[in-house]
Amino acid sequence: MPPSDPSRLRIVVADDSVLLREGLVRLFDEAGFETVGAFGDADSLLVRIAELQPDVAVLDVRMPPTFRDEGVRAAIRIRADHPSVAVLLLSQYVEGTYAQELLSAGNGGTGYLLKDRIASLEELKDAVTRVAEGGTVLDPQVVRELLVRRTDPLAALTPRETEVMQLMAEGRTNAGIAQRLTIGVGAVEKNVTAIFQKLGLEDSGDDHRRVLAVLASLQR
């Protein structure tokens, strides 16, 4: 449910950068929000969140210990265990996979913004308020990434898999691809298998998956 007093939202912040974390606290204070907790990692936030009872949790995507997806994992858990708490992810990069995972985990009350593209305090204040009210806030670049992933399965390929796909389209064998990319044939075979999986090309015994993969590339 939306907070009873949107003008005095209770915020918790999790970001491993001290400067960014303290900067967010000051910005939220200026915006009229109440920052009830600031943490350097997601686990510390999760331990205290029930006690602090925030309206919104603002988290960095990458935090200790692995600096991969701790913020996303915490956000998904918060939405599951504390559905009244909205979450706003902040990142330096467009990470479409993480955004898609978060959005698929709940209905509203979520946001994903790029730190470098937040132009003003008002913009940040508006984003926090909107997710607190149950809305969804996404940076336009994140939206474009999600649309590409939805409409183009080839967007899921890694740079190496894309190179292998292009050489497959040229009619090269695995041995020829290996020679061209200066990698082992076994590495090529792993990439080819990954391409088949990501394009949803099951080994039915009727269709030649290599041909289907190349057709998908040419129809892009």
Rank of each mutant, 00 (worst) to 15 (best):
V128D: 03
V72D: 01
A86M: 06
V128Y: 00
S44H: 07
P153N: 05
V128E: 05
T97R: 04
K115C: 10
L121Y: 13
A99S: 05
V56R: 04
T110A: 05
R117Y: 14
T136H: 00
M168T: 02
M63F: 13
D126T: 04
D69V: 10
L89V: 04
L59Q: 05
E133M: 15
D43K: 14
Y98L: 09
G111M: 04
L167G: 02
P153D: 02
I78V: 11
P159I: 09
D43R: 14
V85H: 08
G96W: 02
A169F: 03
M63G: 12
K125W: 01
E145M: 14
Q100W: 09
S84C: 15
Q53E: 08
Y112S: 00
L124G: 10
Q92C: 13
Y93Q: 08
V56K: 11
S84V: 15
V164S: 07
D43G: 01
K115T: 12
E170C: 12
P64N: 08
T110M: 14
P65Q: 01
A169P: 04
Q92I: 10
D126A: 09
F67C: 13
A132L: 15
I76M: 02
D139E: 04
R117M: 11
G135P: 02
L167N: 07
L114C: 07
L167I: 11
F67Y: 11
